[in-house]
């Protein structure tokens, strides 16, 4: 099995399994994600969204449960790229699967700096861009494109993916990720609490968006993301037009689930 996420590009990003795992920076997750037997592996690891400098993140609490999942608002808490590279560069270099470094929303110049640093980092197979409403997504993609030849995956919000998908590819993205966790809200002690929705309830929303992007017939690979908790979920996304599937919060519940889905998908 081989899935190419950067076809016709200078540097390939080839997955040997369509299941991609998101979160963390590898070593501990990779261990629990590898099947105890056999050689099947997940296709790639997409890191936690990372910034150039450390970010303490949003005030606590950062997670609120709701029916069908959770709202999460981390504020892109992360240790910063320099720390990540110090801590994990050896593990990435030795990784059997490509590491895709996710960029959390921040200034375009910081993105360009990060992209340039990662360009020659062993084991890094690509970059996944997470935008926010204050960013000019197209300018950001162009800036990253100018700084690196690494394949770029643009992870789009579900509510406007259809409108911006083609432009993102024209700006230099190699593939689309559909999409970021949908935004949601709860009223907590009389006050609105905003976050992104993770869990099974996100799947139908993401699935519909994937099908809509498929119908645009864009000449680029598409990765699906949203509420994948089982092999059946992953297969639905693949049937809807995705070439690969990301799973995130499912491994919070069951760390070995990614390996199990990958093994199932490898068997066809």
């Amino acid at each position: 099995m081989s899935i190419e996420l950067a076809p016709n590009w200078k540097r390939s990003l080839t997955l040997t399994n369509p299941l991609m795992l998101t979160g963390g920076y590898a070593p501990n997750l990779a261990k629990v994600s590898e099947p105890s037997q056999g050689s099947t592996s997940i296709g790639a690891l997409v890191t936690l969204p990372t910034t150039l400098r450390p970010r303490a993140g949003a005030p606590l609490p950062r997670v609120v449960e709701t029916a069908g999942g959770v709202l999460l608002r981390t504020g892109a808490a992360n240790p910063g790229l320099a720390h990540v590279l110090r801590e994990y560069d050896r593990a990435w270099e030795q990784s059997a699967i490509p590491i895709i470094v996710a960029f959390a929303a921040q200034g375009v110049n910081d993105w360009a700096t990060m992209a340039a640093q990662l360009d020659s980092t062993a084991g890094v197979g690509g970059i996944e861009l997470h935008f926010n409403p204050t960013m000019d997504a197209l300018d950001a993609i162009r800036a990253v494109r100018a700084a690196t030849e690494l394949p770029i995956l643009a992870k789009l919000d579900l509510d406007n993916a259809r409108d911006v998908a083609a432009d993102c590819l024209a700006a230099g993205a190699n593939a689309l990720v559909i999409g970021r966790a949908p935004r949601g809200m709860r009223i907590i002690e009389g006050h609105p609490w905003y976050g992104r929705m993770y869990g099974p309830a996100a799947k139908p929303l993401a699935l519909r968006a994937v099908a809509e992007i498929r119908d645009l017939r864009l000449d680029a690979p598409m990765v699906a993301c949203g509420g994948v908790h089982s092999t059946e979920d992953a297969r639905e996304f693949l049937a809807a037009g995705a070439g690969a599937v990301e799973t995130d919060s499912a491994v919070w519940l069951e760390p070995a689930v990614a390996a199990r889905i990958a093994a199932d998908l490898a068997q066809g």
Binding site: L29, L48, P54, G57, R62, V63, L72, A77, N78, G80
Partner: peptide, 21 residues
């Protein structure tokens, strides 16, 4: 604090310390 994943995957339980996040 709520610790959704327990493995360092989600960073929902990140705290700022004098030695970094």
């Amino acid at each position: 604090l709520p610790m959704p994943c327990g493995t360092g995957a989600c960073y929902a339980c990140a705290v700022e310390t004098s030695r970094g996040v």
